[in-house]
Amino acid sequence: MPEHHLLSEKEAEKILKDLKLTKDQLPKIRISDPCIRALDAISGPVEEGMVVKIVRRSRTSGVSTSYRLVVRG
C-alpha cells in the first residue's frame, strides 16, 4: 500500500498554490476508501474536502508524489 499523509489546511493551500491548481481539479478519493479509513484512525479525523498526499514507488521515476481530494461516498 502506498503511503498516505493527511495534509493540514495550510499545507494543502500551499501545495495547491505551488501547483497552480484549485481543489476541484485534484483527483478524488472516497472517504470510505480503506486507505482513508486507516488514515482517519491514525492521524484523523479526516473530513470531506481535505487533501491527502500519496507517495508511491514508481516504476518509471523511483518515487512519485500525488495529491487527492477526499470526497463523500
Binding site: 501547483l19 491548481l21 481539479q25 485534484l26 518509471t60 512519485s64 508524489t65 500525488s66
Partner: peptide, 22 residues
C-alpha cells in the same frame, strides 16, 4: 504545457506525465 496530464475539464489525471515526464 506544465507537464501534467489533464482531461477536457482541466482536472488532473497525472501531475507529471508517466510520473517521470519522459
Amino acid at each position: 504545457q506544465d507537464g501534467s496530464v489533464r482531461n477536457t475539464a482541466g482536472t488532473i489525471i497525472q501531475l507529471e506525465y508517466g510520473e517521470d515526464g519522459i
